[in-house]
Each structure stands twice: as C-alpha cells, then as structure tokens.
Design a protein around this nucleic acid. Structure first.
Length: 325
DNA sequence: GAAAGCACCTGACGGC
DNA sequence: TGCCGTCAGGTGCTTT
C-alpha cells in the first residue's frame, strides 16, 4: 500500500526516466482511472499529447509531472525551450491503494489491470511507455493547474524547486521529509483539533504522507497510544511523534518501501523490503520487540479503528488509568 | 466549521 | 465446487 516512502521511490524512478521527454500518445483502456479529470478522455489526451515532462514532484502521497505549455503537437524541439521553465499544468497522479506507475517497453504484454498508457519520445536505452496499473481503482490520473504555494516555498520534493503546487494538492500539509516542514506550525494545528492522535496523523491536511502502516509504526516508536486526545499533546510529544514518523519513513525509503504483496512495486516492477522491519503494523499476536528486549512477553494487539485496524503494544503504548495523558 | 461516517473498488480468504 | 460475507485502505463527499 503506497504511503510516502513508496511514492518517493516511484518519484525517483520517474525522475530518472521521464524528465525531459515528450508525451507522444495516450491510451485510456479504463476511464474510471481518470474519473477525476472532469472533462473526459479526449480532453485528458489533448492536454497531454505533445507536452514535455519538466519534472517529477511529490508532496505527501500526491505526485505530479509539471508539463510544458507547448502541447497540442506543435513540435517538441523548436527554440522556445525557455518558455517552458514556468509550467502551468501538470499530470497529477495518486496511487490510492494499489496504483503502480511502471516504465515498460511496448513489447511487454499489458498488465491485467492496465488503466492508462503514455507513450514517450524515444531515448536510447529507456523504456518507451509509462503505464498506470491499478487493481482497486482507488488511485487515478488527471490534468490539473499549477498554482503558487501558500508560503512561497517549493511545492514538494522536486529537482526544479519551483514555488508551485498542483491545485488539487494545495490543501494538504507538508510531509515530515519536506525541508519546508514546520514543526511549530504542525504543533499549533494539531493542538487546535479535538480528535485522537492517529486520526489526526491520517488527516493529510495536517501532515501528509502518513497512512495506516506508518502511523502505527511511528506511534509504536514514539510510545504513544493511538487514541490520545490531540489537545493533551505537549510540544515534546508532538516532536517525538514527528521524529518517529520521519525515522520510520527514512528507513522504509532506504529499503525501497513496504511491500506485502504485488500491490506496491517501483517503476521497474520490483518490491520493497521494509515489511520485514515492521514492529507493530500487521503484527497482532507477535511479541513486542521492545518489551522482549526487557524480558517481557507482551504481544502486539489489534484494535478496530476507523473501519480498519490499529496495531499497538499494550505495555509500551498504554491508555492511562486515571484519564491523564 | 469541524469531526465523523461512508462509498468507492477488487481480490483474497474463510465459512458453509 | 461455488456462493456469500468480510476485510484491506486513501480520498472525497455527505452527514452530524
């Protein structure tokens, strides 16, 4: 399931393969994957064919490809390259639960759940197709406008570092790996909420990039209960949780992301290895590694939470008995 | 306005 | 063997 580390792995792969190349053809075998592009398949294709990919940018779990404005097939190699440096539109992608962006050679057979195929201008030793594959269709692609960021800082992880952001990503918060992430701003915002801590961590408008897996892992590492009311958080608590999220996601990034099955792969189709390092998520009934080191026999427990699961250690991450956190 | 609930979607899996 | 129900979960819309 793609969260921030998995999306960043994909971004780095795309950056290598698609930056500077022109989209020459677009096929949409399943229009459900571009349902967020309100103007339909033909408009989607018309916005992409002839456009050049200038960059690959990520904020949280959103990924976008800023595009040159001289699209519509008027030639990719004329002398107006300078005009392209401030893009106005982007191809937006969200992987949802099972989305994959794969670089493939046209000779490779179509994947079972192939939804969109972009053909790119030829470059030596580079795959010609960028394929969007999505089993559960929670993800999708669409073309969106680029707008100035609220704080005038770069929109996310990118090479160009332009102070622009895809309009549909403007509402989400900075992620913990973003150099412009503000710990104080995060603390002020989360303190003003009246909800549980994990629910707040999953709210992408507060802090982006964290999903169910890394929320559980970060809370385990920070030794905080998932239901802790946000209004009881001290600065040090918030700092500990963000630091833990950052640490866990960096480790996952180094491992190529978390893969439980074939639902998450990088642009080359390879799985990540971080699932082997999980301490809480999916570990129901397994010994808590931290307690085990102290000679305790605590088992990770599973609670129902927001129509899904939450995994935690009842000893390391206890609910208080007297209501004081 | 904020918080919570729910639909979307498909494949795996267990129970009968 | 086949059918049915449940589960997984990120986002956006609807409801409270």
């Amino acid at each position: 399931m793609p969260e921030l580390p998995e999306v960043e792995v994909v971004r780095r792969g795309l950056e290598r393969w698609v930056t500077g190349r022109t989209i020459t053809a677009v096929q949409v075998p399943d229009p459900r994957s571009i349902r967020r592009h309100a103007l339909g398949v033909e408009d989607f294709r018309g916005n992409l064919i002839g456009a050049r990919v200038l960059d690959v940018v990520r904020r949280g779990k959103f990924l976008w490809l800023p595009l040159s404005d001289r699209a519509k097939g008027d030639g990719a190699d004329d002398d107006r390259v300078d005009d392209d440096r401030v893009p106005h539109t982007a191809l937006m992608a969200h992987l949802g639960m099972s989305g994959q962006l794969l670089m493939q050679d046209p000779s490779q057979p179509d994947e079972k759940h192939l939804k969109v195929r972009l053909t790119l201008s030829s470059v030596e030793d580079a795959p010609e197709e960028l394929r969007f594959v999505d089993q559960r269709i929670f993800g999708g692609l669409f073309v969106t406008a680029l707008i100035p960021t609220a704080d005038g800082l770069p929109g996310g992880q990118s090479a160009l570092s332009l102070p622009l952001i895809a309009a549909e990503a403007a509402h989400i918060g900075r992620d913990p790996l973003d150099p412009a992430f503000s710990q104080e701003a995060f603390y002020q915002r989360i303190r003003s909420r009246k909800t549980g801590l994990k629910r707040a961590l999953l709210d992408q408008s507060l802090i982006s990039g964290i999903g169910n897996i890394y929320a559980d892992e970060a809370l385990w590492l920070a030794k905080v209960h998932f239901a802790r009311p946000t209004e009881t958080l001290r600065r040090s608590d918030a700092q500990r949780v963000v630091d833990a999220a950052r640490d866990v996601m960096r480790l996952a990034l180094d491992a190529g992301g978390t893969s439980f099955d074939s639902l998450y792969v990088n642009v080359n189709g390879a799985s990540g290895y971080f699932a082997r390092s999980l301490n809480a998520y999916g570990q129901e009934g397994e010994p808590c590694a931290r307690c085990a080191a102290l000679g305790l026999q605590t088992r990770i427990r599973r609670d129902s939470f927001m129509n899904r699961s939450s995994f935690s250690c009842p000893v390391c991450q206890p609910r208080p008995r007297n209501g004081r956190w």
